[in-house]
């Protein structure tokens, strides 16, 4: 499943990211890598989300959530 399909409050694990290199590296240094567990704090219908990575909340847009493959844990 894709990240934007994740329900509020669920914990997901990143399987794969298919983003522009620059953006992907940015997320990686912030601690979002393949295998990282993230929690969906809040979400909007259009795909924007607030996610928690390693204790920090991030707001990510649809242009990210649509291209991150996750699985439920």
């Amino acid at each position: 499943m894709k990240l934007y399909e994740g329900q509020k409050g669920s914990t997901l694990q990143v399987v794969h990211m298919d983003l522009p290199l620059q953006l992907e590296r940015r997320l990686e240094v912030l601690g979002m890598l393949e295998g990282t567990k993230i929690t969906v704090v809040n979400r909007k219908k259009k795909g924007a989300m607030i996610i928690k990575i390693r204790g920090t909340r991030f707001a990510v847009g649809q242009n990210i959530t649509e291209y991150v493959e996750v699985k439920e844990v």
Partner: peptide, 20 residues
């Protein structure tokens, strides 16, 4: 402000911009 970016994301999306 960071929360505002999230709240406004939908409306800004209508003119093709992100909430930021």
């Amino acid at each position: 402000m960071a929360r505002v970016a999230y709240v406004m994301d939908g409306i800004m999306g209508k003119i093709g911009l992100s909430g930021r």
